[in-house]
Design a protein around this nucleic acid. Structure first.
Length: 296
DNA sequence: CAAGGCTCCTGATAGC
DNA sequence: TGCTATCAGGAGCCTT
């Protein structure tokens, strides 16, 4: 389940292995993988062919590859199970291979004799996908203009985040998952940051003081940075980075997925609660529910 | 306009 | 054995 750290690992892999290469051909093997591309698979392929890939960029969980000499980019989202793999040409197709992108510097067009590589989008659950969009004047694909900056972005405005949080009439975990308020945080890192902050997921955002908001942001950054340092999180074999290497940050999680296991601070068994059609993991002792009566 | 619920999808797993 | 139910969940879209 890729969140910001995992997507950043992928972005770095793309920058290393894909940026600067020119697209020779594109194969779309599953229409759902390009469903955000309004022109369909054929148009997607046509928009890429012959264009050189610029430096890979990322905002939150979105990443994009600018197409040089155009005002457009390939936008990608990994969804739940998406992978961008750089594979040797001729390697057996993955079971859930959705899109294949070949480059001019390999295969039959290769001047060197070395086997070339291709970029593959592999996605079991097909929540992710690739598409081409025009850029805004800021160089952002237009369809993600509503996505907020992420907490690792140097231009992220902590004070504005606190102000926005105070104005919301919602609870803290919902706010953390709202990509128009702060991007890159998913269910896993939300639970981890809340555990570190000793905050219950149902605490109303309107109760947040500035120090509390800042402390939470600090923990969000710390847990993401720690995950980045070990190359991303992996809970099953679905997530691997751009070169197919799994992360292992899941061994360092304190709350997520630890139902019944002792809290690493106080020993109380971690609880799992159904929440918004998913789960929230928290320590019932360290993260006390708000006193305010909850509806429902 | 904001908030919250629904839905898309596949595979692993549990229960009967 | 084989079926069904449940869970994983990001984010666009729709309703209230």
């Amino acid at each position: 389940m890729p969140e910001l750290p995992e997507v950043e690992v992928v972005r770095r892999g793309l920058e290393r292995w894909v940026s600067g290469r020119t697209v020779a051909s594109v194969e779309v093997l599953h229409p759902r993988a390009v469903r955000r591309h309004l022109g369909g698979g054929e148009d997607f392929a046509a928009r890429l062919k012959g264009h050189r890939i610029g430096v890979a960029r990322r905002r939150g969980k979105y990443l994009w590859l600018p197409l040089d000499d155009t005002d457009a980019s390939i936008l990608g989202h990994l969804g739940m199970s998406g992978q961008l793999l750089v594979q040797p040409e001729g390697a057996p197709d993955e079971k859930h291979l959705r899109i294949r992108i070949r480059f001019t510097d390999s295969g039959s067009g290769s001047a060197a004799g070395a086997p070339g590589t291709e970029l593959r989008f592999v996605d079991q659950r097909t929540f992710g996908g690739l598409s081409v969009h025009d850029n805004t004047p800021d160089g952002l694909p237009d369809v993600i203009a509503h996505i907020a900056r992420d907490p690792l972005d140097p231009a992220f405005d902590d004070a504005a985040f606190h102000t926005a949080l105070r104005l919301r009439r919602t609870t803290i975990k919902r706010a953390l998952l709202d990509q128009s308020l702060i991007s890159g945080v998913g269910n896993i890192y939300a639970d981890e940051a809340l555990w570190r902050s000793r905050l219950h997921y149902d605490r109303p955002t309107a109760t947040f003081t500035r120090p509390r908001s800042y402390e939470l942001l600090g923990h969000v950054r710390d847990v993401m940075t720690a995950a980045l340092d070990v190359g991303g999180t992996s809970f099953d074999s679905l997530y691997v980075d751009v070169n197919g290497e799994s992360g292992y940050f899941d061994r360092s999680l304190d709350a997520y997925g630890r139902e019944g296991e002792p809290c690493r601070r106080c020993g109380t068994p971690i609880r799992r609660r159904p929440w918004m059609n998913r789960s929230s993991y928290y320590c019932p002792r360290c993260q006390r529910p708000p006193r305010v009566a909850r509806r429902g």
